[in-house]
Design a protein around this nucleic acid. Sequence first.
DNA 1: AGAATATATAGATAATTGTCAATACGTTAA
DNA 2: TTAACGTATTGACAATTATCTATATATTCT
Lengths: 102, 102
Amino acid sequence: MDYKKTATMFKAFCDENRLQILSLLQSGEKCGCKLLEEMQITQPTLSHHMKVLCDSGVVKGRKEGKWMHYSISEEEMDAVAETLNELKQNMEKEGNSCESCR
Amino acid sequence: MDYKKTATMFKAFCDENRLQILSLLQSGEKCGCKLLEEMQITQPTLSHHMKVLCDSGVVKGRKEGKWMHYSISEEEMDAVAETLNELKQNMEKEGNSCESCR
DNA sequence: AGAATATATAGATAATTGTCAATACGTTAA
DNA sequence: TTAACGTATTGACAATTATCTATATATTCT
């Protein structure tokens, strides 16, 4: 696993404002100005968070005229879920406790 | 959704060292000293990361004598996956694009 | 009791991140 | 071609986080 890339991916979910943005995007694609109306942050702060979200891959942007339309990337959400699943593997196996610490 | 709590939960996964720790715990419960052997950080730094991981709920600690044995919480991993899934809902619905921006 | 071991805490510092005001850029409308 | 609008960037600052050294705490062994 590429830890650096994975850490960047999960950064989408570890800020309260970004979680709110993702919630707002649940109902579908929205432009920045619409998102801004629903939030208690300034426009540059929103812009910053949208950059973090896009860098993580979880959100995709689509430019249309002067608007940027943002939406959740289903493929990336699946990739995040898959990564989570990888981290869960082998947990139930026998003989995995720390024998050398006895 | 409790954004604050959810953000704390996801912080487990957005640091390279913590991802390495989680990978090491994939093979089962391990004590701090074992984890430390495998990593390039000092003991207090490990202790800090273990606190973040335990606060997130993703890792559980079990004290046994002078050792702390850490393991991944399967229940919490499932909760994380469930939260991810919630954030993915409704994405495919029709009529969800930003109509007011036209 | 004293030494050794595993872990946690305190305090300091550097790096990263979140935020805002100001401004720039690109697009559309008058 | 201005003016207005939506978004991005810059620069400053505050808050948070990651890291270390030094030290404290708790447990076990001799």
